[in-house]
């Protein structure tokens, strides 16, 4: 059974803050149907949502690939946005470049990337200025 993998793919619309979080909500539903434990679902839901929202707010959308195996859930979010100049700085709690209009909606606390770090078992973030950002999130399923 170890090689059994379920793949899900999403296109995230960068101009549509109204439906941001739809992909994460869908993945949550799928994991629930698969009988994945609530603690694991929580870890995936929080970390994927933060990355999905970042993609909409900071990078004008992108694509999400989710693969689910009995051992782990892997989420790769790739965008063609402006990139992140200093990843260490961006990872700091409270650091945010979100504009005022976005802050008024409750975003911009600078806690998104730190949340991903906290809730994912593995987080890899690569970014190139002017090219885009890729965030990889892995949550292990305890056997």
């Amino acid at each position: 059974m170890t090689d059994e993998i379920l793949s899900l793919n999403y296109q995230v619309n960068g101009s549509d803050l109204q439906s941001a979080g739809v992909a994460s909500s869908d993945v949550k539903k799928v994991l629930r149907k698969l009988g994945v434990s609530p603690e694991i679902i929580r870890k995936v839901a929080i970390s994927m949502y933060e990355a999905e929202i970042n993609m909409v707010i900071h990078a004008n959308g992108g694509t999400i690939d989710v693969s689910i195996s009995p051992e782990q859930i892997k989420v790769v979010l790739a965008d063609n946005g402006p990139g992140i100049a200093n990843i260490d700085l961006a990872m700091k709690e409270g650091y945010s470049t979100a504009p005022q209009t976005i802050r008024e909606m409750g975003f911009g606390a600078g806690m998104g990337l730190p949340n991903i770090k906290k809730y994912a078992d593995i987080m890899n973030i690569t970014s190139e200025l002017g090219k885009g950002t890729t965030v990889e999130i892995i949550v292990n399923i305890p056997q």
């Binding site: 979080g21 994460s24 909500s25 949550k28 929080i46 949502y49």
Partner: peptide, 15 residues
Amino acid sequence: IMSNINIVAVAVLTD
């Protein structure tokens, strides 16, 4: 006091 549509996804995901 947040009342925009994004609170719904947050409520779903935090359960």
